[in-house]
């Protein structure tokens, strides 16, 4: 009787572990675009990172992103240099991270294909500063694939990113950030 109980307990624990594993999704090729263009900008001030790491646990809605700042690519090499050297200081602060969760996770049926409107809330850390971010997003369930999309704005001053006076009218004080990740099951 005692042995059976122990077996049952162990089996139950193993089962719950396995369930955890299947509830997790990830990508290493997520995409984050940011745009700080204003009408007076001489060219689009925008960069894109196609190597964003994103991991999501559908069981509790936890979602985390990590982006290497040096992986942002720009149309002009000089803009990339300025971005890394002067604005985000990517040697000092190599990564941006978001750790948060889908607050209405229970409204998403991960077993059923479809598009679900979600609210995401969490902490965005960039340039050594952490700020709470809340945004509307979308999760699209397509078979084994989850697509996570969101667009939000971040004020550069919140992250102590300074725009020099000389170009203050050519660079937006708020960056529009567009996130697109296609997540696969994490095995």
């Amino acid at each position: 009787m005692m042995k059976q109980l122990i077996h049952a307990t162990v089996a139950f624990m193993l089962l719950s572990l396995q369930a955890d594993a299947q509830s997790r999704f990830f990508t290493k090729t997520g995409r984050i675009k940011f745009d700080a263009t204003v009408p007076k900008s001489p060219e689009a001030i925008a960069g894109v990172n196609n190597a964003v790491i994103c991991v999501m646990d559908t069981k509790n809605g936890n979602i985390q992103f990590s982006a290497v700042m040096k992986s942002f690519e720009f149309k002009a090499a000089l803009m990339e240099e300025h971005f890394n050297e002067n604005y985000v200081e990517s040697n000092k602060f190599p990564k941006a991270e978001f750790r948060g969760s889908v607050t209405n996770n229970n409204t998403v049926d991960y077993a059923k294909d479809g598009s679900y409107k979600v609210k995401v809330k969490g902490n965005l850390t960039m340039h050594g500063e952490t700020k709470e971010v809340e945004t509307d997003g979308e999760i699209i369930v397509r078979g084994e694939i989850l697509e996570a999309k969101a667009t939000f704005t971040a004020a550069l001053s919140d992250y102590k990113v300074k725009v020099p006076q000389l170009v203050a009218d050519k660079v937006s004080q708020t960056a529009k950030i567009i996130v697109e990740c296609s997540l696969q099951p994490l095995k």
């Binding site: 719950s16 955890d20 997790r24 990830f26 290493k28 790491i53 991991v55 999501m56 646990d57 069981k59 509790n60 936890n62 979602i63 985390q64 990590s66 290497v68 040096k70 240099e81 890394n84 050297e85 190599p94 990564k95 991270e97 969760s101 994490l186």
Partner: peptide
């Protein structure tokens, strides 16, 4: 309870960090 434990779980640590392994030329 497991659900509570996972609220603060570091999901990113489940993924290997390629950035540290990749060769990177020193710029600027």
């Amino acid at each position: 309870p497991t659900a509570v434990a996972q609220q603060n779980e570091d999901l990113l640590s489940l993924i290997g960090d390629d950035a540290k392994v990749k060769k990177e030329f020193v710029k600027y």
